[in-house]
């Protein structure tokens, strides 16, 4: 299992445009990477089926921690055929995860800057945001993880981006999950009159 050190930032349209302009100038542009993601938010894990719309591929990912529970995520991932995304989602729903499922489209462009992968994204729930990521081997030491966090923080500082704290991430995801639950309950409201 690889370990992903992942940190995030949310910002407005103006900051987004400035960040993209800066990255286009200073970083390696890895291109557009739009994704349609089906999330299954489990008590202590996050299961995802990802349809990589731009790349024409797909994958299933299990993260052993949720957003807001630390920046180090153990991650198990394997590719599936893009045409099998619907079947994979159907299987997980049939296994009882339907209540925990939500989906989102992410407009995403990837960059590599000083060894950090930066994904600049927009989704309906998160708005404009960015994910800063370093992938480590599963035997990475605590010191190596701390070093990766420090590198990401330095890169974000250099780019003028304020990273979210764990508390901010936890509060944001909790609010999102509550809103999503309320939306699902509203969907159960009485049918209209014809």
């Amino acid at each position: 299992m690889a370990v992903e050190i992942e940190m995030r930032a949310r910002f407005d349209k103006e900051t987004h445009d400035q960040l993209v302009a800066l990255l286009m100038e200073k970083a390696e542009d890895l291109g557009q990477d739009d994704k349609h993601i089906y999330f299954f938010v489990l008590p202590d894990q996050l299961l995802k089926v990802t349809d990589n719309k731009s790349a024409g591929t797909a994958k299933i990912t299990l993260k052993n921690s949720k957003i807001g529970q630390g920046s180090a995520f153990g991650e198990t991932e394997f590719p599936i055929a893009q045409q099998d995304v619907a079947a994979a989602v159907e299987v997980f729903n049939a296994l009882g995860f339907q209540e925990a499922m939500h989906e989102a489209f992410n407009f995403r462009r990837n960059f590599n800057f000083k060894g950090i992968e930066i994904a600049v994204k927009w989704s309906e729930a998160w708005g404009y945001h960015a994910e800063f990521e370093r992938l480590l081997t599963d035997d990475a030491t605590a010191a190596a993880k701390d070093e990766a966090v420090a590198e990401i923080t330095d890169v974000a500082d250099e780019l003028g981006v304020t990273l979210m704290t764990e508390d901010e991430l936890a509060a944001f995801t909790a609010a999102f999950e509550a809103a999503e639950q309320a939306r699902k309950e509203a969907d159960q409201s009485p049918a209209e009159i014809h």
């Binding site: 349209k13 349809d51 489209f105 407009f107 927009w122 309906e124 708005g127 404009y128």
Partner: peptide, 21 residues
Amino acid sequence: AAFLAGASSAEAVAFAVAEKG
């Protein structure tokens, strides 16, 4: 364009609204 890229209709318009600030 966002819809043709794969976003739902609601996401596509929300994205356009965000893009226009």
